[in-house]
Design a binder for these strands. Structure first.
Lengths: 367, 367
DNA sequence: GCCCAGAGTGAATCCTCCG
DNA sequence: TCGGAGGATTCACTCTGGG
């Protein structure tokens, strides 16, 4: 761990719910100290009158005071201010996720781009059990949109490709996620038995976000903490969280919820890693260690080319064709690049085997 | 039919492809004369270097001159101008559909709202066969977003609720549509056998839009006509169209295409109706949804082996034994393959129950 | 004519370390 | 900071050609 991050960690109020306005509080936190922000800002819903189901029961609409904005201009100013404060507390390689609906997400997305955030993906949360459209005047509003953006164009954001691929049973995770809405036992109730928050997000959604975009020990900030879904999942997954919430009622519910959450054991938090994380093995080492001999011939995967190993770990593939395993492979194939480890094979007991097997052998010994 | 609409219909250049800049041409058309606009504007992709597939083949990038803008400001001005012209030609109860990706859709959506359009839904086109993310650095970009908006807040826009419900096998049409991308025989080629347009949209998509948002005899305008998918589907469905296209090559391809289209040609309908598949449930979803917890132990059917669940939906069955439920099962049994769904059980109230039960639960929810 | 293996391809903001 | 080299990375579908 680097000294700077250790220092920041000491100053940060970790695993707490901070009371107050998120813009003021974020501005009071040290600059560049947070790995990830997950934000579920007010949606600026402009509902006209009450909405009734066909049986005349009233739909419990999102009409709380905090969700009323007089105009797009006011909402835009609010968005601009909290995004700027959020950007300030992010580490240079930090990222942000914002969730919204068509009422607000276009304003948010535009402002993200205006401030220099770099959009990595927009992600659709496809609700498997949405509320139907009772009036039959529109399509069933069955999804919400999340924007995933880096602090800058060149931010090296965390992306656990292999872990998300594993979550999706071996094929790349797509930008559309099918997950149920939060209800049943997971949906928090207040003392009166009503839902404690109008837009509580499901933990499954946050699980995927945090597994994919953070590592254990990372600091995750949620400026609109609500009932604390972000904090609950962060705690379970061994990430630190900072929650900011203005409403006392929500803070109370969230605090109670978090006190009951336990972290998963360490082994289960390990996640499938990519090859990129493994130590580099120079091809020359195979020759030095006698696994391949100078003068020995290698064959291309497709058996169309061959090349000879030299004592210094380079290959010769013909007149004027020599260099690293990658360079010679690329040159023979007329390709811009080539992974020599998977391209070249050697003869072993009459069979042709990729040289990558020898690298794996060395890597195994290193553990 | 009202007198005004009869008059406008006479003056309008119906079922033609107009050559030139869409802003100028729209401004030359009579005000308030069009029922629906479908627009597929440039996305402003801002691609940098080349991209290669893992097999070293080069991805044919969308690098056409018409998609180049010098800045967000330039793109915003373009958006503002064409949307204003579009709004002028719309009837008071007219509506617009705009399709885009995260590169441009937030700019478009904001400007729609700024000009007074009233968003009715955002609709996600979930591609059943998208291009993967070849470098494994992001999520597969598997969807595009359409915005459906009325000219005003109080526009009475056409919405054929029952027709869409029928297209969706009797249940309300949702805001996410699963449809394949345009390829195969539908994809138009030029004389050289290359794709005639880099971003041709599938007819199935337009079929749903026009069935849901127009009536026979309505006038549909497409200011970025391209190869004329909007016109082709409009003609099949007995709607009138107005196409505007700047590039002569596209106009020629579109004209040829349209000459072959016959009214009530039902091909595109078949595609959208027939696309139904048993949803795949990844094991990882059981973990995300908290049906199984990271750290929890699973037991083999025969009770000879056990394994621990990890946060990314993989199992650990011992040192150097980890991977999917299927892989770990196969490895522990020394078998070439294994159906993890029926092989693994979990403890529930003291009894061991196959995890497949949990999958069935999820599938049941999806219907 | 049928089947199967292999090649081709799609709106994409797609690498990282070391010197 | 920049340039060069190492080397990691793909899903669903269509079409073509050979047997």
């Amino acid at each position: 761990m680097k000294k700077t991050s250790r220092k920041a960690a000491v100053e940060l109020p970790l695993n707490e719910i901070l009371a107050g306005d998120c813009i003021e509080i974020m501005n009071s936190l040290p600059e560049g100290s947070v790995d990830l922000i997950f934000a579920d800002p007010p949606y600026n819903l402009q509902l006209k009158g009450d909405l009734h189901r066909p049986d005349n029961s009233k739909v419990d609409a999102v009409d709380d005071e905090w969700d009323q904005f007089s105009s797009f201009a006011a909402y835009d100013k609010f968005t601009k201010d909290w995004l700027a404060a959020a950007r300030r507390v992010l580490k240079p390689n930090g990222a942000i996720w914002v969730i919204g609906s068509y009422h607000n997400i276009f304003r948010v997305g535009s402002e993200l781009q205006n401030q220099g955030f770099w959009i990595l993906n927009d992600v659709v949360w496809r609700k498997s059990n949405p509320m139907p459209n009772f009036r039959g005047k529109r399509l069933t509003n069955a999804h919400e949109t999340m924007i995933w953006a880096g602090k800058n164009e060149d931010s090296k954001c965390t992306f656990n490709y292999e872990a998300l691929k594993a979550l999706n049973e071996g094929t790349q995770m797509r930008s559309d996620w099918v997950l149920p809405i939060c209800n049943g036992g997971e949906r928090l109730k207040n003392e009166a038995g009503e839902k404690a928050h109008p837009t509580q997000k499901p933990e499954s959604l946050l699980h995927r976000v945090l597994v994919g975009a953070t590592n254990p020990g990372d600091v995750v900030l949620d400026p609109f903490f609500g009932t604390g879904t972000t904090g609950a999942v962060a705690k379970k997954l061994g990430r630190d969280f900072i929650g900011i919430e203005r409403e006392e009622a929500y803070r109370k519910v969230a605090a109670k919820r978090l006190s009951k959450v336990r972290k998963f054991d360490k082994e289960s938090l390990m996640v499938s890693a990519s090859k990129r994380a493994q130590p580099r093995v120079p091809f020359g080492q195979l020759v030095e260690r006698g696994m391949l001999l100078p003068g020995e011939e290698l064959y291309s995967m497709n058996m169309r080319h061959k090349a000879k190993v030299r004592a210094d770990g380079t290959l010769v593939g013909g007149p004027d064709v020599s260099g690293s395993i990658h360079q010679v492979g690329a040159q023979l194939e007329g390709a811009p690049s080539c992974n020599g480890w998977t391209y070249w094979c050697y003869k072993k007991d009459g069979k042709t085997v990729p040289i990558d097997l020898l690298r794996q052998q060395i890597r195994a010994e290193m553990n």
